Deep mutational scan, measured.
Amino acid sequence: ADDEVAKLLVDAYRKNDEDKLEEVKKRYNISDEQVKRLIRKVL
């Protein structure tokens, strides 16, 4: 599931889509710190 979330985050990140990032964060209840970590893992 982590990889799936990471893909969604990276996708939103690449598109610079703040709304999507927020949506994913809320849906999976993850912190900014986790977001950064997941994005770093993929990029």
Score class of each variant (00 low, 15 high):
Ala1His: 13
Ala1Arg: 11
Ala1Thr: 13
Ala1Met: 15
Ala1Asn: 13
Ala1Trp: 15
Ala1Tyr: 15
Asp2Tyr: 13
Asp2His: 10
Asp2Ile: 12
Asp2Leu: 14
Asp2Trp: 15
Asp2Pro: 10
Asp2Ser: 11
Asp2Val: 10
Asp3Gly: 09
Asp3Leu: 10
Asp3Arg: 09
Asp3Phe: 11
Glu4Val: 11
Glu4Trp: 14
Glu4Gly: 07
Glu4Met: 12
Glu4Asn: 10
Glu4Phe: 14
Val5Pro: 04
Val5Leu: 13
Val5Ala: 06
Val5Ser: 03
Val5Gly: 04
Val5Glu: 02
Ala6Tyr: 12
Ala6Cys: 15
Ala6Ile: 15
Ala6Gly: 08
Ala6Glu: 10
Ala6Pro: 03
Ala6Val: 14
Ala6Met: 13
Lys7Asp: 06
Lys7Cys: 12
Lys7His: 10
Lys7Glu: 09
Leu8Ser: 05
Leu8Arg: 05
Leu8Cys: 07
Leu8Pro: 01
Leu8Trp: 04
Leu8Met: 12
Leu8Phe: 03
Leu8Asp: 04
Leu9Ala: 02
Leu9Phe: 04
Leu9Gln: 00
Leu9Lys: 00
Leu9Ile: 13
Val10Glu: 08
Val10Pro: 00
Val10Ala: 12
Val10Asp: 04
Val10Thr: 08
Val10Gly: 04
Val10Lys: 05
Asp11Met: 03
Asp11Thr: 03
Asp11Lys: 03
Asp11Cys: 10
Asp11Asn: 04
Asp11His: 03
Asp11Trp: 02
Ala12Ser: 03
Ala12Tyr: 07
Ala12Gln: 01
Ala12His: 03
Ala12Arg: 00
Tyr13Val: 10
Tyr13His: 06
Tyr13Phe: 12
Tyr13Leu: 13
Tyr13Ala: 06
Tyr13Asp: 02
Arg14His: 12
Arg14Ser: 12
Arg14Trp: 14
Arg14Asn: 12
Arg14Ala: 10
Lys15Gly: 09
Lys15Ser: 14
Lys15His: 13
Lys15Val: 09
Lys15Asp: 14
Lys15Ile: 08
Lys15Thr: 13
Lys15Pro: 01
Asn16Ser: 07
Asp17Ser: 04
Asp17Thr: 02
Asp17His: 04
Asp17Glu: 06
Glu18Tyr: 15
Glu18Thr: 15
Glu18His: 15
Glu18Asn: 15
Asp19Ile: 13
Asp19Arg: 13
Asp19Val: 13
Asp19Ala: 15
Asp19Lys: 14
Asp19Thr: 12
Asp19Pro: 07
Lys20Leu: 15
Lys20Met: 14
Lys20Phe: 10
Lys20Ile: 10
Lys20Trp: 07
Lys20Asn: 05
Leu21Phe: 08
Leu21His: 01
Leu21Asn: 00
Leu21Ile: 14
Leu21Arg: 02
Glu22Trp: 07
Glu22Leu: 11
Glu22Gln: 11
Glu22Gly: 06
Glu22Asn: 13
Glu22Asp: 09
Glu22Ser: 09
Glu22Thr: 09
Glu23Asn: 05
Glu23Trp: 09
Glu23Cys: 06
Glu23Tyr: 07
Glu23Pro: 00
Glu23Phe: 06
Val24Ala: 04
Val24Phe: 08
Val24Gly: 00
Val24Gln: 01
Val24Asn: 00
Val24Cys: 02
Val24Glu: 00
Val24Thr: 06
Lys25Asp: 00
Lys25Thr: 03
Lys25Glu: 00
Lys25Phe: 01
Lys25Ala: 05
Lys26Arg: 13
Lys26Trp: 03
Lys26Tyr: 05
Lys26Thr: 08
Lys26Pro: 00
Arg27Met: 12
Arg27Ser: 06
Arg27Ile: 09
Arg27Leu: 12
Tyr28Lys: 01
Tyr28Leu: 05
Tyr28His: 06
Tyr28Gly: 01
Tyr28Asp: 01
Tyr28Pro: 00
Tyr28Glu: 01
Tyr28Met: 04
Tyr28Thr: 00
Tyr28Ala: 02
Tyr28Trp: 06
Asn29Pro: 00
Asn29Thr: 03
Asn29Met: 08
Asn29His: 08
Asn29Arg: 06
Asn29Phe: 04
Asn29Gln: 10
Asn29Cys: 08
Ile30Asn: 00
Ile30His: 00
Ile30Thr: 01
Ile30Pro: 00
Ser31Pro: 05
Ser31Thr: 12
Ser31Lys: 03
Ser31His: 04
Ser31Leu: 03
Ser31Phe: 01
Ser31Ala: 04
Ser31Gly: 05
Ser31Gln: 04
Ser31Glu: 04
Asp32Lys: 03
Asp32Ser: 06
Asp32His: 05
Asp32Asn: 07
Asp32Ile: 05
Asp32Cys: 08
Glu33Phe: 04
Glu33Pro: 03
Glu33Ser: 08
Glu33Gly: 06
Glu33Tyr: 04
Glu33Arg: 05
Glu33Gln: 07
Glu33Asp: 11
Gln34Ser: 07
Gln34Lys: 06
Gln34Ala: 11
Gln34Tyr: 11
Gln34Val: 11
Gln34Ile: 09
Gln34Cys: 07
Val35Gly: 04
Val35Thr: 07
Val35Ser: 08
Val35Asn: 01
Val35Pro: 00
Val35Tyr: 09
Val35Ala: 14
Val35Arg: 01
Val35Gln: 02
Val35Leu: 12
Lys36Val: 11
Lys36Ser: 08
Lys36Gln: 13
Lys36Glu: 13
Lys36Asn: 11
Lys36Leu: 09
Lys36Tyr: 04
Lys36Asp: 14
Lys36Trp: 07
Arg37Phe: 04
Arg37Val: 10
Arg37Asn: 13
Leu38Asn: 01
Leu38Glu: 03
Leu38Gly: 01
Leu38Gln: 02
Leu38Arg: 02
Leu38Ile: 15
Leu38Asp: 02
Ile39Gly: 01
Ile39Cys: 03
Ile39Glu: 02
Ile39Met: 06
Arg40Ser: 14
Arg40Gly: 13
Arg40Cys: 15
Arg40Glu: 15
Arg40His: 14
Lys41Asp: 12
Lys41Leu: 12
Lys41Thr: 11
Lys41Ser: 12
Lys41Arg: 10
Val42Gln: 10
Val42Glu: 11
Val42Gly: 09
Val42Leu: 14
Val42Asn: 07
Val42Tyr: 15
Val42Ala: 14
Leu43Asn: 06
Leu43Gly: 05
Leu43Thr: 07
Leu43Met: 11
Leu43Trp: 06
Leu43Cys: 13
Leu43Gln: 06
